[in-house]
Design a protein around this nucleic acid. Structure first.
Length: 423
RNA sequence: GGAGGGUUGGCCGAGCGGUUUAAGGCACCGGUCUUGAAAACCGGCAGGGAUGCGAGUCCCUCGUGAGUUCGAAUCUCACACCCUCCGCCA
């Protein structure tokens, strides 16, 4: 959520920022709501003040045993108008709040303008794609003989649910373990185990539930949603609280399954494990002072990159343009891993700085040096998406005979298994 | 599923219709004292909002929402959440 003070004090600046990402801000509605609110609030507070003053007089008169009927008659006349004003004001404020909560974040100045992924900017590249002396297969074909089974997944739950068995399932587990261990032991994150469902309130704290409800799986009859990423529960650790500045920065790494309805992506990436309803991810979350978020964002991105480097997977870092960023983000880097089967770089991690946008939505604050409660900044990113990393390993480490060599970094987690071979 | 208890500021905790503009303590900040620190003492200290150049003034908030009342943390109703015990159960 944007700072309403910013909209009140410098609307043109906010509008310019929103325009960069192609958001059509309804200025007429906003100005009209604000004007109505201002007038109604002033009148309501005036009446409330009057009622409070007179009621206190009643108490004083009665305390002294004097007659209060004149004051009672006066205050009685306020009742109806006050009631109507209060009701109207509450409704108006709710309307304003709802209006504000569907406005996206303003991009940072260093985010390039653009309309779509075409306009994203490559920041750096790591590794050299391997030269194959045979035509590399994609992960579906490589995995077919190794325990990757979409037919069984479809029988159990429908399309976009993978089943893995044997060494492949082990590799999947090893990847998650490797990521979590690296992030906690080498990069200083605190491991977190979290609920895989969150309330509507939490969901609306990290993104806009009103806007993106269709992307989530809802639990029938309950105010609970399956999490699309561990960012949802972890970021909400600080919801409705004022964190002691001494505790900052907070840094958490959480491994969880992620559930996404993928509504609107029909026909996209229907093959394989690129886009599924359920996948695992190790998520990195940093909760920091405002002045530290930019540095934390770079650092967290490097922490995600470290996983790809240790696995020897070539990748590039893309700075997303204004038109391709997520709703809540002020700046986002995507990591794209090289997939020989597609001969393309594909997203495997997304690292964003939300600045105070999420913190304001969830009332997450800290006490600054002046002793005032101030909105925190939140930064997060995948470190990494486990399913897509498995895809990258299968495709990059495949051999001509259909087997897959296990990257050295995974050795401690594979119990001596060095290669996955067809049964 | 059944029974009971609870929800007050950053934290703990008093308060059960009008000297509560929410006592007191802890934490935190500033000061006195001290070689320095601790202790002690003195002072400050909830959040959000309206308005004003400003000093300030005012409004809202005691889990949430309704209700009673001139006036509600306090009384009534509904709901949510937490805790304890019983049952069931990985």
């Amino acid at each position: 959520m944007l700072d309403i003070q910013l909209l009140r004090k410098d609307l043109p600046a906010a509008l310019a920022g929103l325009k960069r990402r192609g958001f059509d801000f309804d200025e007429t509605t906003f100005r009209s709501l604000e004007e109505k609110r201002r007038k109604l609030q002033a009148r309501t507070e005036e009446l409330q003040g009057k009622r409070n003053t007179l009621s206190k007089q009643v108490g004083m008169l009665k305390g002294k045993g004097e007659d209060a009927s004149a004051v009672l008659a006066e205050v009685g006349g306020i009742g109806d108008e006050l009631k109507a004003n209060e009701t109207g004001l509450t409704a108006l404020q709710a309307e304003l709040e709802a209006f504000l909560r569907v406005i996206p974040n303003i991009p940072r100045a260093d985010v390039p303008d653009g309309r779509s992924a075409e306009d994203n900017v490559e920041v750096r590249r790591w590794g050299t794609p391997r030269a194959f002396d045979f035509p590399p297969k994609d992960h579906v074909d490589v995995g077919a003989g190794l325990g990757l089974d979409f037919d069984t997944g479809a029988k159990l739950a429908g399309a976009r649910f993978p089943v893995m068995t044997g060494g492949l399932a082990r590799l999947h587990r090893a990847l998650a373990q490797f990521m979590l261990t690296t992030q906690t032991e080498e990069h200083g994150y605190t491991e977190a185990y979290v609920p895989y469902m969150v309330s509507a309130e939490c969901a609306d704290g990290v993104s806009s539930l009103a806007k993106f409800k269709e992307d989530l799986f809802k639990i029938e009859g309950r105010d609970l949603y399956l999490i699309p990423t561990a960012e949802y529960p972890v970021t909400n650790f600080v919801r409705d609280s004022i964190v002691d500045a001494k505790e900052l920065p907070l840094r958490y790494a959480a491994h969880s399954p992620c559930f996404r309805s993928e509504a609107g992506s029909y026909g996209k990436d229907t093959r394989g494990m690129i886009r599924n309803h359920q996948f695992d991810k190790v998520e990195l979350v940093q909760i920091v002072r405002p002045e530290d978020s930019s540095g934390a964002h770079e650092q967290l991105t490097a922490h995600a990159e470290a996983i790809l480097q240790k696995l020897g997977l070539p990748y590039r870092v893309m700075l997303l343009c204004t038109g391709d960023m997520g709703f809540a983000s002020a700046k986002t880097y995507d990591l794209e891993v090289w997939l020989p089967g597609q001969a393309a770089y594909r997203e495997i991690s997304s690292c964003s700085n939300y600045e105070a946008f999420q913190a304001r939505r969830m009332q997450a604050r800290y006490r600054n040096d002046k002793g005032k409660a101030e909105a925190l900044h939140t930064v997060n990113g995948s470190g990494l998406a486990v399913g897509r990393t498995l895809v990258a390993v299968l495709e990059n480490y495949q051999d001509a005979d259909g087997s897959v060599t296990i990257p050295d970094a995974l050795a401690p987690f594979m119990g001596g298994v060095k290669r996955l071979e067809k049964a």
